[in-house]
Design a protein around this nucleic acid. Sequence first.
DNA 1: ATCGATGCAAAGCGTTTGCAGGGGT
DNA 2: ACCCCTGCAAACGCTTTGCATCGAT
Lengths: 133, 133
Amino acid sequence: LEAAGCRYTRQRAAVYAYLASVDSHPTAEDVFYALRNRLPRISLATVYTSLETLVSVGLATRLVAAGGAARYDGRGERHYHLRDEETGEVRDLPASFDDELLDKIDPQLVERLAASGFRVSGYRLEVLGRFER
Amino acid sequence: LEAAGCRYTRQRAAVYAYLASVDSHPTAEDVFYALRNRLPRISLATVYTSLETLVSVGLATRLVAAGGAARYDGRGERHYHLRDEETGEVRDLPASFDDELLDKIDPQLVERLAASGFRVSGYRLEVLGRFER
DNA sequence: ATCGATGCAAAGCGTTTGCAGGGGT
DNA sequence: ACCCCTGCAAACGCTTTGCATCGAT
């Protein structure tokens, strides 16, 4: 925390501790309600800013770029996407879609997931980076 | 359009035609402004509902589930995710992260993208489906 | 004629911001 | 003591909804 060059505060520490202790990928609101027991006066705005602080120093990741607008795609064939991490811009990735990619990660993945209660219907792959210029 | 069991309207047809004609992955607002020339009385709400109609009958895809809340992850190691397409719930995928997956799609992908002006910094893979019960 | 779709405006939800006061260094 | 962070509330941006009207079938 302080090692990452950010000031220690009770709230930030609590947000970080909670986030590191669960694997449920909570929303800001989830974190807020989880912390209210121990820190009754914490505000939702603080949770938001703390989370973004943690992301900016690399101690957390944001899984969905909510807040931006939804983007739509009218092309029939499935394909991968390039996403500019700074602007949110999306373009198509010029490469063919691989229906067997999940099998290449693990040949039994889909079956194992089914056995654990997750019915797979597809996957989505985004290459992250930056469009230059 | 009608083949998919949805009523033909000028607005829907225009939204669909525009979406199919571009590869820019427009936002609802982008579509709205693009159509205003031809359909000056179209409303933004109609564009939103038309887009969702197209998605529901499979003629379009929504690339980002904006509107939902952002989800955060405090775990250090990179990993894949499972996403419930109906609830938005996210869990970790129990499989090791493959740093070379992009190379398995195309060994020269990263270089080719660099040559075309996209600097790759990573990728994100989500397995889509449904948590049962 | 029917019933779903449109257009408008207002509400809704998640997120960010302005500002005054508090706490970490 | 300094300055950043917090808490509150209000603003914000994107999306959805209620309702009366319109239009495709």
